[in-house]
Structures are given as C-alpha cells and as structure tokens.
C-alpha cells in the first residue's frame, strides 16, 4: 500500500490472482449483483453467499448495502451469523458497505439493535439523514491516492466511536466513514455504485495478503467444506 499522497493504489495487486481467490457477497438481501459485477470487472471471481456451505468456500466476504434489521434477522433465522463470526475471527477478510458496516459493528449508537461485533466501532444509523439527504460526495481517501473518490451515501451511517485499534481511512464532515481494524474494512458509502474500482482493489489486497499469510503459515485461509 502506498502512503498518503503517493502513487495511487492500482490494479497491480489484482493481476494474476483471479484464479487463486474467490470473493463472496452475502446474498440474503441488498445490492449483491453490483459488488459481483465490480469484482468481475477487475478480473476476480465473485459469488453470492446464502448458506454455510457457500461461506466455507470464499477467501473474502463482502456484506453489501441493504437493510441491517432485515439482514440481522435473516442471519439468525438461517444460522449464518455464528459461522460468519467464526470465520472472520479466524482471519477471513471482510468488507461491509453501508448496511454491512452496521451489521459488523460492535454496537449501534442509540438503538437496541443486535450486531455481529466484528469491529470495535459504534455506528449511528441514518446519521446523515433520510433519503432526501442521500448524496454524492467527492471524498478524500489518502490511502487510495490523491484523486478524490466519488462516494455515494444513501441513508448512510457514520462511525460515532471507534476503538484504539481501529484506523480511520476517510472522514466526511468530521465523522469517520471508512475504517479498518486488521481484517475488517467498513465504508459507510457504496463504491459498488460507481465506476471507480479502487476500494474493491484495496479490499482485494487485504484478501491476497491474508491468503498468502495463511499459505505461508501452512494453514490456508479457505476452510474445507464440511
């Protein structure tokens, strides 16, 4: 990864890895196809994840945009929440976009809403307002290079509190909207709705590093299907 102001993050991480990794997109509800389409555009195979067997086959997982209350209920009803937590705690790279950020947060500020608790943040839902306040914003994301990112915020949350191990990668109006803690990345906006693939490539670099680290340690990142 290049430092702030350095060379823009580029597709070089992606070249040649398409046959080595598979990205899953949690497909209980939300804009699943949009993420799959971006991954395919950058040459990486991606599949919808609806069952535990699907989950066991992927090297990285995206929790897409959608409704967090709906998806939390479906995760519980179809026994997918616990296996997802287990894999991510064992190192599976995960990226949550908007709803995904809420689903994986430690807590939701001001609401009694269950979450998976996979990153040490408290999110505030609809923090920028209702739909009439949804907006396109040119967002500075130094880790992706100097060129601003066309960020689409839709009834978006912000990160209200974050633990010491959490790195803030972008802010809007003084609030964190992109954070990372080890193998978990969160954006409160929707890179899958734009033509700019840099955040997807950034996530792929996390997946690649995790799978190489796993291979080096002789354990492999991907679990055998039970």
């Amino acid at each position: 990864m290049e430092a702030a102001g350095g060379t823009p993050f580029s597709a070089r991480f992606v070249a040649g890895i398409s046959e080595r990794i598979s990205i899953g997109v949690l497909a209980l509800q939300g804009d699943v196809d949009e993420h799959i389409a971006v991954m395919r555009r950058v040459g990486v195979s991606a599949v919808g994840v609806k069952t535990r067997a699907d989950l066991a086959r992927v090297d990285g997982l995206i929790v897409p945009g959608g409704e967090s209350t709906t998806v939390m209920k479906l995760l519980a009803r179809f026994d997918l929440g616990r296996p997802l937590q287990d894999r991510v705690r064992a190192g599976l790279p995960l990226w949550g976009t908007c709803m995904g950020t809420i689903v994986v947060a430690r807590e939701v500020a001001g609401l009694e809403q269950p979450t998976l608790g996979l990153i040490d943040i408290a999110v505030r839902r609809n923090a920028f307002g209702r739909q009439n306040d949804s907006a396109e914003v040119a967002l500075a994301i130094p880790v992706l290079g100097a060129e601003p990112f066309p960020a689409i915020f839709i009834r978006a949350p912000w990160i209200e509190r974050q633990g010491r191990g959490v790195e803030s990668l972008a802010e809007r109006d003084g609030h964190s909207v992109m954070v990372r803690e080890r193998n978990v990345l969160c954006t409160s906006f929707h890179p899958e709705l734009t033509a700019d693939t840099r955040v997807h490539e950034y996530f792929l670099s996390m997946v690649l590093q995790a799978s190489e680290a796993g291979r080096a340690a002789g354990i492999g990142n991907r679990r055998d299907v039970a």
């Binding site: 804009d31 959608g66 709803m99 009439n132 306040d133 949804s134 914003v137 689409i152 709705l193």
Partner: peptide, 19 residues
C-alpha cells in the same frame, strides 16, 4: 455534495433488492 441525483435515487431502490 450533491443530493437528489439519479444515482442516489436509483441507489436506494438497489438497496431494497431481495427484500
């Protein structure tokens, strides 16, 4: 910061998919 664009309007519908 631009509100009410085609992208954010169509985008909310995209977030409702599968629901």
């Amino acid at each position: 910061t631009e509100t009410g664009t085609i992208t954010v309007k169509r985008g909310l519908a995209q977030m409702l998919k599968g629901g």
